[in-house]
């Protein structure tokens, strides 16, 4: 693995982002709108709900964290789709870049894209709604890390589909997170779900992450077991996603679909 090759792909995406003001605005616009919308919803609930009245911003904090997950996953997919749309994939595949270098470069660049979008939105929430994610304290770093890993995991799975099935898989890229959101227990506790669905929800890291977020904000106590489970589950899913990606790549080479992925 060569750092210089990884940096070259990151540089390609950095050039792309910095060259286009609409692209930067697009990165910032959606998270900001999302947070303003959920900020008002959160304010309304705080005023009218006994569950939320002591924890102003519980919904907004969840919304911000969910958006972080959403942006990291979508960013990963977008970076790969950019290569498909610009018909540049073959140039990358015939270069000395290894698959693991492509994965690392996209993972790092996705973080940059996510932060460009999310940091301004998070900062806006402080004066506008009096809510700061920093209230979550040190565990915030672990929660964000967990969300980021899960976002990348989903991104990798979608990218594996794009490699194998081509741009026709693009719609799945956009919809991937919406499939999981209902059982991610982002805005409500796991107990709300039907009994049969709860084990499925608990098998995902999201339920543990958002359960812990609520726990910190409501009771002001940190349950590291939730964070630990989330990280463990994340590792399992990430390894599965990496294996799927490699399998998909190998299969695409056998079936010859790699040369048509940009068509």
């Amino acid at each position: 693995m060569k750092i210089r090759r990884i940096l070259s792909l990151m540089l390609r995406h950095f050039y792309l982002i910095k060259a286009s003001l609409p692209r930067i605005v697009d990165l910032i616009y959606w998270p900001t709108v999302q947070i303003i919308l959920w900020g008002f919803v959160s304010k309304f609930f705080t005023m009218h709900s006994t569950y939320f009245n002591n924890t102003a911003g519980i919904i907004l904090s969840a919304a911000i964290l969910y958006d972080f997950l959403f942006r990291s996953s979508i960013s990963y997919n977008m970076l790969f789709l950019e290569e498909i749309w610009s018909r540049n994939l073959i140039n990358l595949f015939v270069s000395p870049l290894k698959v693991n270098e492509i994965v690392i470069a996209l993972t790092c660049t996705a973080l940059l894209r996510t932060l460009i979008g999310l940091v301004p939105a998070v900062l806006i929430a402080i004066p506008l709604f009096g809510i700061s994610l920093l209230e979550l304290g040190y565990p915030l770093i672990l929660l964000l890390l967990s969300l980021y890993i899960f976002g990348i995991t989903l991104g990798l799975l979608v990218t594996a589909g794009l490699v194998r099935f081509g741009p026709s898989f693009e719609n799945i890229a956009w919809a991937s997170l919406f499939f999981i959101a209902p059982i991610g227990c982002i805005y409500y506790p796991v107990e709300i779900l039907p009994n049969w669905l709860q084990p499925i929800a608990l098998a995902l890291p999201l339920a543990h992450i958002f359960e812990e977020t609520r726990s910190i904000l409501i009771t002001n106590t940190v349950h590291y077991s939730n964070i630990y489970y989330a990280l463990m589950l994340n590792m399992i899913y990430l390894i599965l996603a990496i294996c799927t990606f490699y399998y998909s790549f190998k299969n695409a080479k056998i079936k010859g679909s790699l040369i048509n992925v940009g068509e």
Binding site: R12, Y15, L16, S20, S86, R87, N88, I90, N91
Partner: peptide, 14 residues
Amino acid sequence: NFASPYVELPKKLK
């Protein structure tokens, strides 16, 4: 290395 008019370099980059 390889060149083909059917494979392009990123259009948005200088």
